[in-house]
Write a protein that binds this DNA or RNA. Sequence first.
RNA 1: GGGCCCGUAGUUCAGCUGGUUAGAACGCGCCGCUCAUAACGGCGUUGUCGCAGGUUCGAGUCCUGCCGGGCCUACCA
Length: 516
Amino acid sequence: MSAAQPFFVTTPIYYVNDQPHLGHAYPTVAADVLARFMRLDGRRVRFLTGTDEHGQKVARSAEALGVTPQQFADQVSAAFREMDRLLDISNDDYIRTTEERHLRGVQALWRELERRGEIYLGRFTGWYCVRDEAFYDESELIAGPNGAKLGPTGAEVEWLEEENYFFRLSAWQERLLAWYEANPEAVAPRSRRNEVISFVRSGLKDLSVSRTSFSWGVPVPEHPGHVVYVWLDALINYITALGYPDQRGDYSTFWPADVHVVGKDIIRFHAVYWPAFLMAAGLEPPRRIFAHGWWTIEGQKMSKSLGNGIPPEALVGRYGVDPARYFLLRELPFGNDGDFSHRAVVGRINSDLANGIGNLAQRVLVLIQRNCDGVVPAPDVLSAADEALLAAARGLQPQLREHIAEQAFHLALEAIWRVIAEADRHINDEAPWELRTSDPARMRTVLYALAETLRHLAILLQPFMPGSAARLLDQLAVPPAARQFADLATPLAPGRRLPPPAGIFPRYVETDTAAS
RNA sequence: GGGCCCGUAGUUCAGCUGGUUAGAACGCGCCGCUCAUAACGGCGUUGUCGCAGGUUCGAGUCCUGCCGGGCCUACCA
């Protein structure tokens, strides 16, 4: 028996300066599906999420509320945990950058970089914008009223001179390019990879990695007054959660990460800085970074000022956790931008879930209930059509494995739905309600093939809609211990009594005329 | 300025290394069925494949230019 192959997947750690909304739910759900899929596939999984809690913005937000930064972070971090609970997220760990294990790891990595000569003390001068937390080049500035200088976003900038530590990013340009070249799958989707490569090709400057203007951060070891730049701090979470600087144990098992799921806005940090930091410290870069796209809400850009971000409670409260999860992954290819509209969600719920898998399950289960005394029937000889249906069902798992390996969730779901349609067709063709009197043995055979197909579908749907899939498996009387992908090979045992069928995916019926 | 991506049926989109009459889903129309969540199945429906050139025996598919949209270009999911 060989040891289960490890699989490490992460979400971004979410910055506590914002409350959780759809934009956070999305990558978290995607990572959860990867984690659940791999567990069901027999892999040893570590699924990490968490919160990023340092930086000037957090300090200021806390101050505005009259609480300490830690209290503020505690509060918001709790809201993110609540989001995970609502969305049925199966993370194995939850890291916060204010935790002791993280501080220790960040400082250890810092020392290592310093020891290797990858960090040096320099002076940073430039136009800084507090609101944007960004430095701007002179050429980017625009003139404001009263001779004020404004950044490209229209917020005021100030001239800043700061003694900073710098990371020798410029020295890593060629090695990064070589890494992208040698690992074509490391940055996905393809268009992001192109962007990243062209960014690196255009030339890398050394990166300022410490701050002295505020103190809410990880103290730079041996250099009082400096705190570690938030991104360096934040990125390291992926290894401090594995016990770094201890490179035995979890670190040796799970690093390098199999997939970092990130938003397209933070691809550069993950695909350029992060691998450079790691390589500079003598550590391995991650295997893959996948950048997802942005959702608009009813055609409008999601933004704090518009206040149109959908909080997890609203998402789950309105549609239910599994339909919401399904929609997010089915509606568009992971990596693309898309629109989250009520109309589109209802369309998916009704045509795919209620009319699709929900109705199929109901027809099969009711037929068995009424015509087989509620017991899984024993099949006679399977017809060619029965075999064809079962072959399609059995063929799903390898297909899904390929799609999931590429984070092509929508293709995985599409493949499942093709089998659902095939099963529906099979029922229509065989008309078990007629066979009941004309050929009961044939009827039992058909219903058995359908039940067995349904079992495959339910097992394979578990990563996407864990609660609903479990209810379906319950109705098929599949014991909880027999729901792994490995169990697909063991056909449903005839003779097992089934509970009375109960609908799993109700139609979404508009309750009010004015859908808000 | 430099770079990346996109523009295909009413809608959302597939169409990888160029090759028979351009596809899917949803929607819509007709028919069938009645086990089922007024669900399911069958058939059908609409396209100057952004525009103009070019390469080729042959181009949504490659090249050039143009038009339109989005994104990246050093720190907001």
